[in-house]
Design a protein around this nucleic acid. Structure first.
Length: 142
DNA sequence: GCGACAG
DNA sequence: ATCTTGTCGC
């Protein structure tokens, strides 16, 4: 399955489910590299994986897929709403100074505010939250 | 017809 | 994602 904007989950979910099967512990929450409901049909990879696995999920993306937002403040942890018309579909967060903001959105069984709180809580001084950093590190063999 | 477009 | 360019920390 090739990468097609809007259909990322069909490419990534199979591998994610296999990885979950291999775990020896049961996660309480999954932080996914991609959007949750901040998707044209509110079904980003985080939401899709949550629905199929049953786990609560949060979407953390490095780029916007859909929606509009005001410029985010320069200060670390500044944030603004990601909107599709008058509907809130996520939060745009300045995870640290001098970097482009990241996009947080509920995946499954998590609300906007708790999703944002979890991500902020997982920040360790870098642009991406620690779970995502660790995953990227493993995926790049480091 | 033109621009946008997660990883 | 991958590639290229610029800045930063060790």
């Amino acid at each position: 399955m090739p990468y097609i904007p809007g259909l990322l989950s069909f490419r990534e979910v199979p591998a994610a489910l296999a990885a979950l099967e291999a775990l020896t512990i049961q996660p309480e929450l999954l932080m996914v590299d991609g959007h949750g409901i901040a998707h044209p049909r509110r079904l980003g990879v985080a939401t899709h994986l949550g629905l199929i696995s049953g786990y609560p999920t949060i979407g953390v993306a490095k780029k916007r897929l859909t929606g509009r937002h005001e410029e985010v403040g320069e200060a670390p942890e500044s944030h603004t709403l990601l909107l599709d018309g008058d509907e809130r579909i996520g939060t745009v967060l300045r995870s640290r100074g001098r970097v482009k903001p990241i996009f947080i959105s509920p995946g499954h069984r998590v609300g906007h505010d708790t999703a944002l709180a979890w991500v902020v809580r997982m920040l360790t001084g870098y642009k991406l939250p620690e779970p995502t950093r660790q995953a990227d590190k493993l995926a790049s063999n480091r």
